[in-house]
């Protein structure tokens, strides 16, 4: 990995952490666990498209571990890891056969995978089948937030100089 690339990826990771910090300071609009904008995914999506899967994985893992140490607690690490990894897996599968302009679909599928994985973890931890009642709410929120982050990432990539990616 060249110094240039390392620096670029580190910058992306820093941006993702900053976005996460701002997002967690925002007041919650809908008090349902798991419903949040997920704006840090803009960075994951951008790195996935510009630098490929393995770089996106590194940026994602670094962001999750650092955010967990800085803002979270042991339990949130488990949820973030499950959600983030499933999201990246689905996004890299979907984006491999979709064109760039359908970035928002990739993002929606990623958000749905993220919410689904987190609900699965919530069910495993609480072992109360009632928590599955959150599913429809999480699907709707995943579609809305996924669409939004996908469009944001599309705009970002439009203005991000291409040369940096090399």
């Amino acid at each position: 990995m060249s110094v240039r690339k390392l620096t670029t990826l580190a910058l992306f990771t820093t941006l993702a952490i900053a976005i996460y910090a701002v997002e967690s300071a925002l007041p919650t609009l809908i008090p349902i666990p798991g419903i949040k904008p997920g704006l840090a995914n803009i960075i994951t999506l951008t790195v996935l498209h510009r630098h490929g899967r393995s770089q996106a994985l590194w940026v994602l893992l670094t962001r999750i571990f650092l955010c967990s140490i800085l803002f979270g607690q042991a339990m949130s690490l488990l949820y973030s890891l499950a959600g983030g990894l499933c999201c990246l897996l689905i996004m890299s599968l979907v984006s491999s056969f979709l064109q760039r302009r359908f970035l928002f679909i990739t993002s929606i599928m990623g958000a749905l995978a993220h919410n689904g994985a987190q609900l699965a973890v919530a069910y495993i931890i609480t072992r109360v089948p009632g928590v599955l009642a959150y599913l429809p709410f999480l699907i709707i929120s995943g579609i809305i937030t996924g669409l939004f982050t996908g469009l944001c990432a599309g705009q970002l990539m439009k203005y991000l100089p291409r040369s940096e990616a090399q």
Binding site: T28, I32, I125, V131, Y134
Partner: peptide, 21 residues
């Protein structure tokens, strides 16, 4: 840290459960 369960307020009818993850 998040207090989502407190923000869910008081429930009087069966709907989604109040959860403190």
């Amino acid at each position: 840290p998040d207090h989502l369960c407190v923000e869910q307020g008081f429930l009087s009818h069966p709907s989604i459960p109040i959860t403190c993850l």
